[in-house]
Structure formats: structure tokens, C-alpha cells
């Protein structure tokens, strides 16, 4: 349950995991009873389909949007982190550099980072607000960069080199995802053709009859 709650928080939505779990349980039960009474061999098919529905609903509603959000965040992160580095190289403090770069750049990631500055105005410390930020951002590399910022705020160490390393790794990761997506396109298209061809032929013979 905690894992699910964390996933929902990473998506950026304020929603209770208990309600989501009970909703999908109720829907799968409705599906189960409907199939048992309506289909001939319902006692075999109904439990199978109910279990598949219960497991698949989490994948469709939470996992796929989360993956898309990671790709989007890493694409925007390449620009944002390099502007953060430019500020840090010119001997600005961490708070000022986050403020500057989130004012200049206009993207979803910069809105998340500008929330840190708003949190510090309410009364949280920088460490606490960075902790809150890392719960809202799903990418591992961006979480590492935030951890770097937090540690340097605590100990006063130089953080530029390690952030550069993380940035390079993030770029490579994003590139691999993009290339993998492009390589999988022909297979998806072939499956599409098989599906639609069979649909066309069935339609033709259904009407001729």
C-alpha cells in the first residue's frame, strides 16, 4: 500500500491509495458476477478476467503515465540542470541559483523547482523542501542531483563535478529510451496491420453473407 501511495504522489496527484484500491476491487467484483451469470462457461472465464482486470488497471492508470512523465522530465532536465550548473559556476548560492533558473526557463520541471522557493517562504528549511521535491519527481538521476544539492547545503562541499556526471548519465539514459522507442515502431505497426487486415476481411464476408 505504501508503494502505491508513493507512486501516486510521484505522478503529482493528491489522491488516496485506499480509495483507488477499493474502487478497482468493486469494479472487478461487478465484472466477475456479470460474467458468471451471462456466459455459458462463466465459472472458468469470470475469475480469470476479474484478476486480469484488477492487475491491469494499476498498470494502465499509474505505470504508463509515470513512465511518460519520467521521459518528459529528463528531456526538460537537460536544459534546466545545465542552467543550474551555470549559476553554481558563477558562485551563486543554491537557493539563488534555483530561483534564477526557474524564473528564466518555462517548463513543468521548473515549476516543480520553483515550488521549493515557495516552500522556504512559508517556513520550511531548504533541506525539508528539497526532500519534498524528491518525492514529487520520478526520475532517478534528477533525484540524485537533488540529493547532491542537499548534501552540499549541509556540508558546504563543491557539487559541480558530481552534478556534471549525473547530467551526462541522464542524457545517455534519455537517448537510449528514445532510440529504443524508435526501434520498436516497425513491430507495433506489423501487429496493427494483422489486426486491421483481419477486421477488413471479416467485415467483407459478413456483409456478402
Amino acid at each position: 500500500m505504501k508503494k502505491l501511495q508513493r507512486k501516486i504522489k510521484l505522478l503529482g496527484i493528491n489522491y488516496d491509495a485506499n480509495i483507488f484500491n477499493s474502487l478497482r476491487l468493486v469494479f472487478s467484483l461487478i465484472l466477475f458476477f456479470y460474467l458468471i451469470f451471462s456466459i455459458k462457461y462463466g465459472y472458468i472465464i469470470a475469475p480469470l478476467i476479474a484478476i486480469i482486470f484488477y492487475l491491469l488497471s494499476e498498470y494502465v492508470v499509474i505505470d504508463i503515465p509515470l513512465r511518460n512523465k519520467i521521459i518528459n522530465m529528463e528531456k526538460e532536465g537537460i536544459e534546466y540542470v545545465s542552467s543550474l550548473l551555470l549559476n553554481l559556476k558563477n558562485s551563486k548560492s543554491i537557493r539563488v541559483s534555483i530561483k534564477n533558473s526557474s524564473r528564466v526557463i518555462n517548463s513543468d520541471l521548473s515549476k516543480e523547482f520553483s515550488q521549493v522557493i515557495n516552500d522556504t517562504k512559508i517556513g520550511l528549511t531548504l533541506e525539508e523542501s528539497l526532500n519534498n521535491l524528491s518525492e514529487r519527481i520520478p526520475s532517478i538521476f534528477l533525484q540524485n542531483i537533488i540529493l547532491n544539492l542537499k548534501e552540499s547545503d549541509k556540508n558546504g562541499t563543491n557539487v559541480i563535478n558530481s552534478i556534471e556526471r549525473q547530467l551526462e548519465a541522464m542524457e545517455q539514459h534519455y537517448e537510449e529510451i528514445v532510440v529504443g522507442k524508435n526501434k520498436s515502431i516497425p513491430i507495433i505497426m506489423c501487429l496493427n496491420t494483422i489486426l486491421f487486415l483481419s477486421l477488413m476481411i471479416v467485415f467483407l464476408f459478413y456483409i456478402i453473407k
Binding site: 536544459e79 545545465s82 549559476n87 558563477n90 551563486k92 534564477n100 533558473s101 528564466v104 518555462n106
Partner: peptide
């Protein structure tokens, strides 16, 4: 990208060579 990062120089005086 060019316009947004050059805005750092215009608004906050970060060195343009970097």
C-alpha cells in the same frame, strides 16, 4: 534553449562565455 539561457546573462549577470 538559446533565448532562455542567454536570459541568465541579461537578468542576473552570469558570464556569457560560460
Amino acid at each position: 534553449y538559446m533565448s532562455e539561457l542567454l536570459g541568465l546573462n541579461v537578468k542576473y549577470g552570469i558570464s556569457i562565455i560560460d
